[in-house]
């Protein structure tokens, strides 16, 4: 029985794969159907995942085990229910309280975390002696890193109109950003091609058995 169900699973997967690939021809009912099924499955998957990995262990299981000892958890539960009141226009204002607490907590945590990891640590890593490297390529690389970081940061300085020397510095910053975007683009292309190869491998191998 398991083998029949496995075969059915492969056929189901092949059907959905072909439905999505049919979009390469043009938008059609098969693609629209598969797209909406994906939205539904995806939403339900994340909901079930959140229930089992966050809500049950952090809230429901603790309250069920020792209700009086974990009564403080009723506060986030109440705030969560207040969040759900956003559904109705008349009670929408109630959801502002949990949102404010979430946003305030996030702001406090982000401020400290980004100050450390994204500003101070990155600045420290850039403040190096470029000439203390083993090879000429590394010295050039270190110089490029320092110049690129300074010019890149300057490009994001929008408080003053960039003209003259500042425009030139900003231009160099754009070049470095373009090189970085190119590298990211290259990696993205490779990742997508790898997924495409995976799907073709599935269709030709697991489904049609044309590949050994």
């Amino acid at each position: 029985m398991i083998s029949i169900m496995n075969t059915m699973g492969i056929w189901l997967a092949a059907f959905f794969t072909l439905c999505i690939f049919s979009f390469l021809y043009k938008d059609n009912p098969f693609y629209k159907f598969a797209e909406q099924v994906f939205v539904g499955l995806s939403a339900a998957y994340w909901l079930v995942y959140i229930i089992y990995s966050i809500m049950v262990p952090n809230l429901f299981a603790k309250l069920a085990e020792d209700f009086s000892g974990n009564m403080i958890l009723l506060i986030p539960a109440a705030l969560g229910l207040m969040m759900l009141m956003r559904i109705h226009p008349k009670t929408q204002w109630v959801s502002r309280y949990p949102i404010a607490i979430m946003v305030g907590t996030t702001a406090g945590i982000s401020m400290l975390r980004y100050m450390k990891s994204d500003i101070l640590q990155q600045l420290t890593a850039t403040m190096i002696n470029p000439f203390a490297a083993a090879t000429t390529a590394e010295v050039i690389g270190n110089l490029l890193m320092i110049i690129g970081t300074i010019c890149g940061v300057y490009f994001f300085y929008f408080s003053k109109k960039q003209e003259g020397v500042s425009k030139a510095v900003s231009k160099v910053g754009i070049w470095f950003l373009m090189v970085s975007f190119g590298a990211t683009f290259g990696y993205t292309v490779m990742a997508r091609i790898s997924l495409l190869i995976g799907r073709l491998d599935f269709l030709l191998g697991d489904w049609l058995h044309l590949l050994k």
């Binding site: 990155q122 890593a125 850039t126 050039i140 690389g141 270190n142 490029l144 890193m145 320092i146 110049i147 690129g148 970081t149 300074i150 010019c151 890149g152 940061v153 490009f155 994001f156 910053g173 470095f176 950003l177 090189v179 970085s180 975007f181 590298a183």
Partner: peptide, 9 residues
């Protein structure tokens, strides 16, 4: 090098 510089910026 150049990619790290831009990412740092």
């Amino acid at each position: 090098f150049p990619n790290t510089a831009a990412q740092r910026a």
